[in-house]
Design a protein around this nucleic acid. Structure first.
Length: 277
DNA sequence: TTTATAACCTGAACGC
DNA sequence: TGCGTTCAGGTTATAA
């Protein structure tokens, strides 16, 4: 479910009711996520103030005086702010209950998500093992055509796999990787090092464009994504190739093809996106 | 060091 | 109706 725009939508959604609020309790119903949840948090968190709610890549960072809670939504996670008395549903694994009467509730059927703790004693959260090696934010100035060009030299993997690698750039999940390559007229199987500087420039610009547009519209609705206020995202109407196999390309009417590339579905127009090996 | 593959897990959709 | 198969938005650990 969540790619970067969905995580950003979640961050914006929970901020009004959760930021600067005091944590009353931390309830774990199922600690068995991607990594086990540290149950000591049930003693550590109560009484602490959520000082800020930030995002790094697809991680949500809830900062407190004693440390930062890192929350990743994985493939199927959903974080919502609900009145405390709201009935618990299946797969509601974690509650961060607040003194203001609301609860931040994590629901994650597949449990690929994670809730991790980085204590203040361990230094800045950016030094956390899972954050320290992340590439730049796609919407920052640090991510641009020159960066992409330099990074891709001598890399022999498919460009789609390359841009989906969070150590290169964060936030280009499967939907947006497919869409940005289509917009750039680059075949997803093109060897990364074969891209010209101009193509890298175009691709970087389009990754920014597609992510910014998706954030603007509240994320993509696929199956079950809802923002924390329960509204769906509306970006799905703008998808050109993702999940469009067999349908005509919006530009040239050629049938959109689907292949599997590194275990992930990959959609492209064989005419607009010419292959370069 | 780089790239490919397996793994984590549930549920929906589909074919028989 | 029910059973088996396939696939899904992500990311890491491990193997090659």
């Amino acid at each position: 479910m969540p790619e970067l725009p969905e995580v950003e939508t979640t961050r914006k959604g929970i901020t009004p009711k959760a930021n600067k609020q005091v944590i009353e309790s931390f309830i774990v119903r199922n600690s068995n996520l991607r990594w086990p949840i540290n149950l000591e948090l049930q003693q550590i968190l109560p009484g602490l103030v959520i000082e800020s709610i930030q995002r790094r890549g697809k991680y949500l960072l809830l900062k407190t005086e004693l440390g930062t809670l890192l929350i990743h939504l994985g493939m199927s996670g959903n974080l919502r702010v609900l009145p405390k008395e709201t009935e618990v549903q299946k797969h509601d694994h974690v509650d961060i209950s607040l003194e203001n009467g609301y609860v931040i509730r994590l629901n994650d059927p597949r449990r690929f998500g994670s809730v991790l703790w980085h204590s203040a004693e361990q230094g800045d959260v950016s030094q956390h093992k899972l954050l320290s090696k992340l590439g730049p934010e796609p919407l920052s100035e640090a991510f641009n055509g020159n960066y992409l060009y330099e990074k891709s030299r001598n890399r022999k993997i498919a460009i789609k796999s390359f841009i989906m690698n969070s150590h290169i750039v964060v936030g280009a999940g499967n939907i947006y990787a497919n869409e940005s390559l289509f917009m750039s007229k680059i075949h997803p199987q093109t060897i990364a090092s074969k891209l010209t500087k101009k193509q890298c420039q175009l691709l970087a610009d389009n990754i920014k464009t597609v992510l910014a547009a998706a954030i603007e519209q509240g994320g993509t609705t696929l199956k079950d994504f809802l923002s924390p206020d329960g509204k769906p995202g509306y970006f799905v109407q703008k998808l050109n190739v993702y999940d469009q196999a067999g349908k005509p390309c919006p530009v040239c009417k050629t049938e959109i093809e689907k292949i599997i590339l590194n275990q992930r579905a990959c959609y492209f127009c064989p005419k607009c996106q010419t292959r370069k090996l």
